[in-house]
């Protein structure tokens, strides 16, 4: 090492450092010099252990005395009494053991030498020699083909597990499903979670309806429904037509001031459910992205970037609101091939 490349020790010269005064003198506790104090501490420890026993018994009594009856107060009473008994049983032991250690056991500090962690040089040399002997015995250094074959076999065999796993772990791997939802032309809009179809006349100004596609009761209780619902939920809002600004290409997507927007945030997919009827803003409770329903659900605040997708709607012959088609873009958070 060069002179200039300082190591950072500060004062190596011995005469230039203070001397270590050594371990401070042991201070006696009251119990070390006073037999009565020692006896008192012992009694305290015994009492603490006794409290633990009482806690256990109390917990068992509570088990039989308070059978949870399914009501809020009954469950609370059972939880509270069982738990308090348990807490006393545990704290009694803990406090007793620590008090014992602190007040009664010998509290003289001892010093133990540390040993160098690294192995001495001769041990290291012996270790290297053993490894070398092993390598020589195996002959791997001389036989290149053998080395290659062994490595290939080891590297390849995990595929026997990985290939079947990966092929099935992602379902059908059909990510194009992200583009489509359950909505189709003519499908009625229904209330969530009750499933009542909605008439245009039901939607008064300032109302917000949480909407699902009008599918059969059976479909709604099927296992796949939640995955469909996760894309299909819609918010239905009626604005005063004077407040509503619509892009030219979307003029026909609303019905008499009623607009339908995807409820799934374009940020990371929370339900954007907070509608402030005076400002016409939709607010996401997860990350506060704010969308202006009167203006194409554009982002006015927060981490979302894109407007909420709009569901084109109209009414059918019976006056019920229906979808004109599916959404014209994928709903929910952005992903790499979203626009492809």
């Amino acid at each position: 090492m060069s002179e200039n490349q300082h190591s950072t020790d500060v004062t190596s010269a011995d005469q230039n450092t203070f001397a270590d005064p050594g371990i401070p003198e042991h201070q006696h506790r009251r119990g070390d010099v006073d037999a009565a104090a020692s006896k008192r501490a012992e009694r305290q420890v015994v009492v603490l252990f006794a409290i633990s026993v009482i806690g256990t018994i109390a917990s068992l009594v509570a088990y039989f005395a308070f059978r949870p009856d399914g009501t809020t107060s009954g469950t609370r009473l059972s939880t509270l009494t069982l738990g308090l008994g348990m807490a006393f049983a545990l704290l009694g032991i803990g406090l007793a053991a620590v008090h014992w250690a602190k007040a009664i056991m010998n509290d003289t500090e001892v010093s133990e030498e540390r040993h160098q962690l690294s192995s001495p040089d001769d041990v290291r040399e012996a270790a290297v020699a053993s490894l070398k002997a092993g390598v020589d015995d195996s002959g791997i250094a001389r036989r290149g083909m053998l080395k290659g074959a062994a490595l290939s076999a080891l590297a390849l065999f995990p595929l026997t597990i990985a290939v079947p796993l990966v092929s099935s772990v992602g379902g059908d791997w059909n990510v194009s499903k992200l583009r489509h939802t359950r909505w189709e032309k003519g499908m009625r809009l229904a209330t969530d979670p009750t499933g009542r179809p909605i008439k245009a006349s039901d939607v008064t100004i300032g109302s917000v309806f949480h909407v699902i596609p009008d599918v059969s009761e059976k479909e709604r209780s099927s296992g796949e429904w939640l995955s469909e619902k996760a894309k299909a939920v819609v918010l239905l809002i009626r604005l005063d037509p004077r407040d509503l600004h619509e892009a030219d290409d979307r003029k026909g997507w609303s019905y008499d001031g009623i607009v339908a927007y995807s409820k799934i945030c374009t940020h990371v997919g929370c339900p954007v459910a907070l509608y402030e009827q005076q400002t016409h803003h939709l607010l996401c409770p997860c990350h506060q992205s704010t969308f202006d329903v009167a203006d194409g659900a554009k982002v006015v605040f927060g981490p979302a970037h894109r407007p909420l997708p709009q569901l084109p709607i109209t009414v059918d012959d019976d006056g019920y609101l229906v979808a004109q088609s599916d959404f014209h873009e994928p709903v929910g958070p952005s992903y790499w091939e979203r626009l492809k």
């Binding site: 009494t81 738990g83 807490a87 053991a97």
Partner: peptide, 15 residues
């Protein structure tokens, strides 16, 4: 002893 104290405090919270 500290283990029992930790468990005891957590039991107290759970109760």
């Amino acid at each position: 002893g500290f283990f029992f104290i930790v468990f005891g405090v957590i039991a107290l919270m759970g109760a």
